[in-house]
Amino acid sequence: MEQFLTFLQEGFFHILDLQGYDHILFSFAICAIYANKDWKQILWIITSFTIAHSITLALSVFNIITINGNLVEFLIALTIFFTCIENLFIPQLHSYRVLLSGFFGLVHGMGFSRLLKELFMGMQFNAFTTLLPFNIGLEFGQIIIISFILLVIYCLIKLAYLKPKTITYIISVPVLFQSAIWMWHRFPWQHQILSSSFSLFLT
């Protein structure tokens, strides 16, 4: 039971950790086009994301699939970037957000597994005493994040009298720029490209 609670706590506090806030910004990007009245759509989106990241989290933890960690971090930033682009410029894709969030969940699940392995290096993982509570902790944290985001959007609409489209821009534009910065810094071959370019310059 102690191990269950430990992993539950780790999952919960990881997703709420402001030092690694990429998932929080992803949640903001996902919710930017919605309001409280759209809670059913948001529920489907969260469910799709949860199922998908649970699959790749399990597969990665048990080494059934292995993907370069730097590439995963880059792809996580790319999912945030694409979601913002969709919010701002591709409204035709909004109706497919449940499918897209599922696809993006596959990527984020690999990121979660990387953290789990780093935190408990060398430990034998068990589906019920380690993986399950960690995943449950993630979901509890995600519910808090989504609830907070919807509260912010509600206040912006009801108290600041902002239009939903304006809110979409207020959220999506800064998140877009931050995700672009992450993509640049996390680009897997960036250092190789810079080294090659510098060598060519010297010669």
Results as ranks from 00 to 15, higher is better:
residue 26 F to R: 01
residue 143 I to E: 03
residue 76 I to M: 06
residue 30 I to W: 02
residue 8 L to S: 00
residue 34 Y to L: 11
residue 202 L to M: 13
residue 107 V to T: 08
residue 136 I to C: 04
residue 138 L to Q: 02
residue 108 H to M: 06
residue 30 I to P: 00
residue 188 P to V: 06
residue 185 H to S: 14
residue 89 F to A: 14
residue 137 G to N: 03
residue 201 F to R: 09
residue 4 F to D: 00
residue 46 I to M: 12
residue 92 Q to L: 11
residue 88 L to T: 06
residue 168 T to F: 05
residue 43 L to N: 11
residue 114 R to M: 14
residue 84 C to L: 10
residue 119 L to Y: 10
residue 11 G to T: 01
residue 82 F to R: 06
residue 43 L to R: 13
residue 39 W to G: 05
residue 31 C to A: 15
residue 90 I to R: 07
residue 119 L to V: 03
residue 121 M to G: 08
residue 165 K to L: 13
residue 134 F to S: 00
residue 189 W to Y: 14
residue 96 Y to F: 14
residue 189 W to L: 14
residue 175 V to C: 10
residue 157 I to M: 13
residue 61 V to W: 00
residue 95 S to V: 11
residue 28 F to I: 11
residue 188 P to S: 07
residue 42 I to P: 01
residue 195 S to H: 11
residue 25 L to N: 08
residue 190 Q to G: 12
residue 197 S to K: 12
residue 57 L to G: 01
residue 96 Y to A: 13
residue 66 T to G: 07
residue 138 L to M: 14
residue 35 A to Y: 06
residue 45 I to C: 05
residue 97 R to F: 06
residue 112 F to S: 01
residue 194 L to D: 09
residue 107 V to R: 03
residue 130 T to S: 12
residue 58 A to S: 14
residue 83 T to H: 04
residue 34 Y to R: 08
residue 87 N to V: 04
residue 129 T to P: 04
residue 60 S to I: 01
residue 111 G to Q: 01
residue 60 S to T: 15
residue 16 L to V: 01
residue 139 E to G: 01
residue 72 V to G: 02
residue 90 I to F: 15
residue 45 I to F: 02
residue 53 H to A: 09
residue 186 R to V: 05
residue 191 H to Y: 12
residue 121 M to P: 08
residue 45 I to N: 02
residue 22 D to I: 05
residue 121 M to N: 12
residue 11 G to L: 01
residue 158 K to M: 12
residue 163 K to S: 14
residue 3 Q to W: 07
residue 131 L to G: 02
residue 29 A to Y: 06
residue 91 P to E: 08
residue 180 A to G: 09
residue 178 Q to A: 15
residue 79 T to Y: 02
residue 176 L to E: 03
residue 187 F to H: 13
residue 23 H to V: 00
residue 97 R to C: 02
residue 49 F to H: 02
residue 167 I to C: 09
residue 200 L to W: 11
residue 9 Q to G: 00
